[in-house]
Structures are given as C-alpha cells and as structure tokens.
Design a protein around this nucleic acid. Structure first.
Lengths: 142, 142
DNA sequence: TGGTGGTGGTTAGTTAGGCTAACTAATATA
DNA sequence: TATATTAGTTAGCCTAACTAACCACCACCA
C-alpha cells in the first residue's frame, strides 16, 4: 500500500494546486472591464462602507495609493464618497449599484469557471474538496 | 445528516481557501530579494530553458514584458541567454546556478511556511489535502 | 530564386499602481 | 490654549504592465 504523504510533500502539492487554480479563475477577471486593484477594492467594500484608511489596511497599501484608487472609482461611478458627520477628517467609500453589479459579475465569472470544472466530479470527490477547503481555512487562518 | 455540497458551494469555498493559502505563503517572498515577476519566471525556467515566447505564454504576459524581464534577469546574473542554432530569431533563457539557488530558497521559504502549519494535522487530514490537490490539478489542468 | 506572408523578439510610448516626503485640515490632549 | 496626533491629499518618482509599430528572420511557392 501507498506510504503516507509527509507534511512537506502535501505542502508542495497543495501549493502548486492553489497556484494553478487561481491562475485559471483569474483569467476571467479582464471581462469585468475594471482593473485588478479596483476589483479588489470593490470586494472589500462589499461588506459595507469603509474609510480610506480601512481600505488601505485591508489592501495592504499606503494612504496615497488609496486616495488615487478612490478618485478613480468615484470617477467611474463605482463608489460614492460620504463624509462622517462626527469627524470631518474621515471619508467613507460606499459601493454604488454599478460597482456592486460589477463585483457580482466578477465573482460569477470566477466561481462559474471553477464550478463548470467541478461538475464532472463524483460526490465523494466534491466532499474531499470541501473538506480540504475547511482544513486549509483553519490552518492558514492564523 | 449534512446535505451534500453543490459544485457551486465547493467552488466558492475552494476559491476562498486558495486565496488565503497563497496570501499566506507569498508573504515570505520578499526574503528572496527578487521581485515576484522574477521569481515566477525562474520557476518556469526550472523545468528547462524556454524561449521568450514560451515564457510569455506561461506567465500570461505580452512579449515586451518578457523582453524587459529577460534583460533584467540577465543583468542580475540569474539567467543566461542562448540562441537557437537552427532559427536565429529565437532566444532561450536558461536559469543560472545563482538563479536556481534563489528559486530553491524561495520555494523552501514558501513550502516551509505551509509545512509548519500542516504538521499539526492528523494523517487523515493530510490525506484529504493530498487527495484534494490531485483532484484540483486534474480539473484545472485544461 | 526572389518576393511575400507569418513568426519571434525589440523599441517607443502610455498607463496603472505602488512608494516616500511633505503638506492641510480637523481632532485630541497636556 | 498651545501642541501633538490623525485622516487624507498633493507632488514626484519608479516599476511593470500594455499597445502600436517595427526589424529580422524563416518558409513557401510561382
């Protein structure tokens, strides 16, 4: 019978699989018509309005980068800028209907691309993938 | 008992898990001292010399991007440029000893980061991840 | 055998997106 | 109230992607 895979071997194969999976689904992103940075920002705003500072933290970029990103998103009509009523320094970005629609479409393209490929799998294989996803989230989630 | 997960649900969770996994391991890349694009190119060259066109296809970028990337890699001494003896138009890039060493180190950092987290898992969980990796490679491999 | 069309790669110029440094405006604090 | 801190902006720079246009070479065939 087959020897058990070592953590190192599994790490190696899993790493490779993750790269190939994401490369595949990411190829659909161009169809959204917005840039990767814009798409990513919209996904952060999906959970509700965020201040520019919160967005910078989430995207792991510096304030000036967010200033420019926000200006462009606003110009494209994908977000609205709102000012805080208690603190005049802070500005919040809220995804517009148009922005939300683009994000939904982007997700649909990515997930759809993957889903089509999973439909050929057996129930047991799907179960294995689902279990694996849960294990991964647990171990990389710090 | 739990209802079986649909392909769509699995696609969604797997997508999310892959993003989180790669975000985690990628954080070690800065320690290699080379840029992400350079590191990725070196990994493509690991399997042998490639023409600039092959590299462009593998990296999903346009020829001019590869021209510049190749020039920089050459300047840093990470690759050697070889010309085809039958077709004077084509140029091949071959990883140098220094380039291979940097790639090995980058891989060691990434895989090591992941491996540490997998060591806490049971044999059954490791088996699940290994099986999942194989399934993913099969379905996204075109 | 010498055009002609296609292919591999480069050059030139543009754009997006990241950075630091230095700034303004508003708020918090000693 | 004077000073320090915080949120965001402006200016200027750099890298890495792109497209358009090009050069060099190869293959083919009339």
């Amino acid at each position: 019978m087959a020897r058990n895979a070592t953590p190192r071997e599994v790490a190696d194969r899993l790493h490779s699989a993750a790269i190939h999976l994401l490369r595949r689904v990411r190829s659909t992103d161009v169809q959204t018509g917005v840039t990767p940075a814009q798409l990513s920002a919209l996904s952060v705003l999906m959970s509700g309005p965020k201040t520019l500072g919160q967005l910078a933290a989430a995207e792991q970029v510096r304030p000036p980068t967010v200033t420019r990103l926000a200006r462009e998103l606003e110009r494209l009509g994908l977000v609205r800028r709102e000012s805080d009523k208690d603190d005049a320094r802070v500005a919040r970005l809220r995804s517009s209907a148009k922005g939300s629609a683009i994000l939904r479409r982007g997700r649909e393209l990515r997930i759809g691309e993957l889903e089509r490929r999973l439909r050929a799998l057996s129930g047991a294989e799907l179960r294995t993938l689902d279990d694996a996803a849960a294990i991964i989230e647990r171990v990389v989630g710090e």
